[in-house]
């Protein structure tokens, strides 16, 4: 299966540089799980990072830095990084990166008929909110506008809007200028991981009614 929609190069490069906000990082990592092409590019950008690093002008280390460090090399009493990772929860969504499954998640929340949302609690403060969105066949996915960028990764099922057809693994970027009205395609529920920056505003009468209850 070939993916049709990918994050843009600048975002992938920022991922490799480690400068993305954690919420956005999660969205890109989710896409990378299923996209070897983008993984290759990210790795290449890490190569760029290495090349830039190797070409930086040196800042002298303190005179005894090497000596101090050498004394620590054979010292095994220092706490080593242990692989004590919290248990991985089984979300039934294999395309979710492992590290995301270690995060605390809320339960599925009702948002609208046949639309449910599950919050993912990021372990560090993030400007970006991350949640799973599950929409039934034929539903219009959460109609909303927002004040910042929104990254969407399809985990299962598919949706379609003016920008094209988005199947599992595909990545969609929206911003405040885009008013997409995605419709869920096929017979399966469409499950997406969404990373959203800025404030969410649900549209329509129903949206305005439920807005106070949707605490993201």
């Amino acid at each position: 299966m070939t993916l049709q929609h990918h994050p843009d190069d600048c975002t992938l490069a920022a991922f490799a540089a480690g400068t993305l906000d954690l919420g956005e990082h999660v969205a890109i990592a989710t896409h990378l799980v299923g996209c070897s092409q983008c993984r290759g590019f990210v790795r290449a950008m890490e190569g760029v990072g290495g090349t830039v690093l190797a070409s930086l002008p040196p800042t002298p280390m303190s005179a005894d830095a090497l000596l101090q460090l050498e004394a620590r090399l054979s010292d095994t009493s220092e706490p080593q990084q242990t692989e004590s990772m919290p248990p991985i929860s089984d979300t039934g969504i294999p395309s979710l990166p492992k590290f995301v499954r270690q995060y605390r998640m809320g339960g599925w929340q009702w948002v609208a008929p046949r639309v449910r949302l599950r919050r993912i609690d990021l372990p560090v403060p993030s400007k970006t909110r991350v949640f799973l969105l599950r929409s039934g066949p034929g539903t219009r996915m959460l109609q909303h506008s927002h004040t910042g960028v929104e990254m969407t990764c399809v985990l299962a099922g598919a949706f379609e809007h003016e920008g094209g057809y988005f199947g599992p693994g595909d990545f969609d970027l929206g911003d405040e200028t885009i008013d997409h009205r995605p419709i869920v395609k096929g017979r399966e529920d469409c499950i997406c991981l969404v990373a959203m920056r800025g404030d969410l505003r649900l549209e329509g009468l129903l949206g305005r009614l439920i807005q106070p209850f949707v605490r993201l």
Partner: peptide, 30 residues
Amino acid sequence: QVSEIEAEFKVDEAPLPDMSLASAQSETRV
């Protein structure tokens, strides 16, 4: 813990189809 961050970048252990990208040669090209 920094291992948390390492996990964030280890998104998939499966080998890439074209490993030449990461070769020393590609580093020279970069």
